[in-house]
């Protein structure tokens, strides 16, 4: 053993309808290798929130996933407008989403806080005008 599974997805920033397909695929993959369902749910939620963010704020990008024996790392990289105040963006309820996005059921300012909540390790880097990279690690605990 020791080999990891590497997955890479292009997230289309124009397409709200297909958004979530990368998360679905990761969910299926984890199910296939027998990861406990509670852990899969944490991964799915964190990654799906990230994918939604990439579409509504980041103009799309790339999702790179690596599955190890004991954990999964998810790197979500967009080349969008970036986040000016990360501390603010991490607060529950703070959102810069448009009214259109809210009507679709998102933009409540819970995305980044949810991603952090469901990750064991969470890092975010952003430069205004250049984009945002979020890196999340979720461990596969026995008791999850």
């Amino acid at each position: 053993m020791g080999d990891s599974i590497k997955l890479r997805y292009d997230v289309n920033g124009e397409d709200f309808v297909t958004c979530g397909q990368a998360s679905e695929d990761v969910k299926r993959t984890l199910k296939g290798i027998g990861i406990p369902s509670a852990t899969i749910r944490r991964v799915s939620i964190a990654m799906y929130e990230g994918e939604i963010n990439m579409v509504i704020h980041g103009g799309g990008g790339v999702a790179e996933v690596e599955i190890f024996e004991d954990r999964i790392t998810i790197v979500l990289k967009d080349t969008g407008k970036g986040i000016a105040d990360i501390e603010k963006a991490m607060q529950e309820g703070y959102s810069t989403a448009t009214e259109d996005i809210r009507e679709l059921g998102f933009g409540a300012g819970m995305g980044l806080p949810n991603m952090k909540k469901y990750s064991d390790e969470f890092a975010i880097e952003s430069k205004v005008g250049q984009g945002t990279t979020v890196t999340m690690t979720i461990n596969f605990q026995e008791d999850a």
């Binding site: 309808v17 979530g20 749910r41 799915s44 059921g105």
Partner: peptide, 25 residues
């Protein structure tokens, strides 16, 4: 996504495909 527990039913007035994707997650 923040609050749901096991084996649930979602009641909603939203009808876009992301309601299904959210539910799946």
């Amino acid at each position: 996504l923040a609050y749901v527990k096991d084996q649930g039913l979602l009641l909603t007035g939203l009808v876009n495909p992301q309601v299904v994707r959210t539910s799946e997650m």
